[in-house]
Amino acid sequence: MSDDRSEIFSRIKGALEPLPERTPLPDYARDLPLCTVHPDFPNAWELFAHKSKQVNGTPLKGLAELAKWLIADGQTHGYCDPALVDKVRALPEFNGITLETEFDRTRFDDFTFGITKAAGVIAETGTLILKDQSTSSRLGALAPWVHAAIVDEADVYPDVRTAIENFGDDPSIIWATGPSKTADVEGILIEGVHGPGIQIVCLDA
């Protein structure tokens, strides 16, 4: 195996060696890839909400709103991050909704929604950021039909570049822009393939 390694490196060196000069890394402006074509909004959250709706995401403001949404949608049994569950249960709006704090993979069908923490959102693209260190269960955030991520106002990033600069040292970061989708069959858009069919981002205001 170490043979493969040295072979590959020596072949690369051999391929590059005859080059008379090498292309330098271009020095491009930080905001070159920034997309600025959108209406004005009073704050980054409102831009996020606008962009999120464009990709059929569901932005909500406040946990009470989330409870109302779940009840209106007929959701009664789901997974909730143990660190959030007390706060959620304390809200009267959540009466009648059963929350489990462990995602039991042998009963994965029992959970029709999952509530976990978001590490942030990106306003520019309507994107939700999940990090492994702050996600209580990868499956709880993925397997149920509805996923609701709770985000703090402080974690609303303006754009893709800023979000990248705030990767930190997490080994697994996920960006989700809207619900899971496919257009494999005749180009027709269908949501909810393997991941959530409904992606809620709830601002904990």
Binding site: V55, F167, T177, G195
Partner: peptide
């Protein structure tokens, strides 16, 4: 798409 739905960054 502005961004593909899922981008995972894993190391």
């Amino acid at each position: 798409q502005q961004l593909t739905v899922y981008q995972q960054f894993i190391n």
